[in-house]
Design a protein around this nucleic acid. Structure first.
Lengths: 159, 159
DNA sequence: TATTGTTATACTCTATAACTATA
DNA sequence: TATAGTTATAGAGTATAACAATA
């Protein structure tokens, strides 16, 4: 159990992380807001999935997810088809065009992060990733109750 | 220097932390959006300051800061006066009413965090705070070039 | 002329609720 | 009746640009 002042500090840090987020979002291609990049990233990483699953991974309401999906689908970056086993569901898959865009986004992202985090070791970044993943899990990942804990983490859980 | 996949994972984590942020914001009093809570927290912690300084600490544009300040000032939670030494500047100070509200907010926050993070040790939280602070510093704190690095951190830097 | 703060406008992201279509 | 997804509406947050007052 941590101390009160630590909790207050954590709240401040989380609140202030938005500035980093906005900085990372700078220089995205036109018509590709941050949320679109997230959609493409997740579809590329996890493969074809339903809209509801994507909403879980993004930890946002499905209504919002639906709008983001429409945005990227309208631009041909993903393909959207009916689930043959359930006519209500839609199956989402990244398209070739989306793959190309994502490769571009990823290159830009890595470049930006490498510039800012040049003095971070492999272990530093891994540790931050692990702690952030654990933080999200501790908060129940809010609405993301679908998958097992720590699913989005590539590093081992903190001992 | 970290690896590409770690950078991509970090971008995902930072993007997803918004869900935690929203969860923490739940249950705030009416007329007190998260940004107002941040304003009060910073004025209580750092004491009287100018609007431009507050904008630096919040890492947002001064135009946005001005709106947040007006919101809390309209509700009597802060006092706003002209700087006697520079008629252009405004000096901001938390009021008694603001102090009382902040105490309430803080209690609520600690309660929520304690509930979710009951299995986090003191050291876990401290480490996350340190890494987040360092992350913000590495990103230049964006527009917060005013103060020395790590100023908002209460814990020692990572060795 | 430069700086501090304010206001107007526009954009992104989010949630709730009402709705359609399918199970 | 319940569920997957869509759309309408509203609210919070942010940035840019134009502006006022002061230095």
């Amino acid at each position: 159990m941590a101390e009160r002042s630590q909790y207050e500090e954590l709240a401040r840090q989380i609140s202030a992380i938005g500035a980093v987020k906005r900085e990372m979002a700078r220089g995205l291609p036109p018509e590709c807001p941050p949320a679109s990049a997230v959609v493409l990233t997740l579809l590329e990483k996890h493969g074809e999935m339903r809209t509801s699953r994507l909403a879980e991974l993004m930890a946002i309401d499905m209504s919002v997810t639906s709008r983001h999906v429409t945005h990227v689908a309208d631009r041909g970056w993903i393909e959207r088809r009916r689930d043959p086993q359930d006519g209500r569901s839609r199956l989402l898959r990244i398209s070739d065009s989306g793959e190309r865009l994502l490769a571009q986004l990823s290159a830009h992202l890595v470049e930006a992060l490498a510039a800012h985090l040049h003095d971070w070791s492999n272990e530093d970044v891994a540790q931050l990733n692990t702690l952030l993943s654990r933080l999200r899990t501790s908060f129940g990942d809010c609405r993301a109750r679908g998958g097992p804990p720590h699913e989005t983490t590539t590093t081992a859980p903190l001992s």
